[in-house]
Simulated assay, not measured.
Amino acid sequence: MSRSPDKLFTKNHKSQDFYIVAEQPSEKKPKNRKKPKRRCGRICQVFCWCSASVACFYTLIPFLFWYFPEMCTFMIFSNRFRWPPLGNLNKPSDYGLNHTRNLYLNPRRNIQIGVWHVLPRVLADSNTFLSDLEYDQSLNEQKLPVVLYMHGNTGTRAGWHRLQIYQVFSSMNYHTITFDYRGYAESTGVPSEDGVVEDGQYLFNWIKQRVKKDTPIILWGHSLGTGVATKLAKNLCDEGSPPAALILEAPFTNIVNATYHHPFLIPFKFFKTLKVKLTNFVQRSGVEFASDESISSVTSPILILHAEDDLLIPIELGKKLYDIGVETRPKESGPIKFVAFKAVHGYGHKHIHKAPELAEIVSSFMQTCMESGF
Rank of each mutant, 00 (worst) to 15 (best):
Asp292Pro: 09
Leu144Tyr: 07
Ile324Trp: 02
Leu133Ile: 14
His261Val: 09
Met370Val: 12
Tyr67Trp: 15
Lys320Thr: 01
Pro62Trp: 02
Lys14Leu: 13
Ser26Phe: 12
Thr226Gln: 02
Glu27Val: 14
Ile76Pro: 00
Leu64His: 04
Ala244Met: 07
Trp83Val: 12
Trp160Ile: 10
Phe374Gln: 14
Leu311Tyr: 03
Leu119Asp: 15
Ile217His: 07
Tyr67Gln: 15
Val344Ser: 14
His99Tyr: 11
Gly334His: 08
Met1Gln: 12
Pro5Ser: 09
Leu203Ile: 01
Cys237Tyr: 00
Phe63Ile: 15
Ile177Tyr: 06
Arg121Met: 06
His222Cys: 07
Arg284Cys: 07
Glu308His: 11
Tyr58Phe: 15
Gly346Val: 04
Phe271Lys: 08
Ile113Lys: 05
Ser372Ala: 10
Phe68Ala: 14
Val228Phe: 06
Ser291Pro: 05
Leu305Phe: 04
Gln167Pro: 02
Gly348Trp: 00
Asn257Trp: 01
Lys91Tyr: 14
Ile43Pro: 03
Glu371Arg: 08
Asp180Ala: 11
Leu103His: 04
Ile361Val: 13
Tyr58Ala: 12
Asp309Arg: 03
Leu123Ala: 12
Tyr67Leu: 15
Thr188Pro: 12
Cys237Trp: 00
Asn12Tyr: 03
Lys7Pro: 01
Glu249Asn: 11
Phe18Pro: 00
His161Leu: 11
Ser171Leu: 11
Phe63Arg: 05
Lys277Pro: 00
Pro120Val: 11
Arg38Ala: 15
Leu105Ala: 06
Gly195Asn: 01
Val46Ala: 13
Ile165Ser: 09
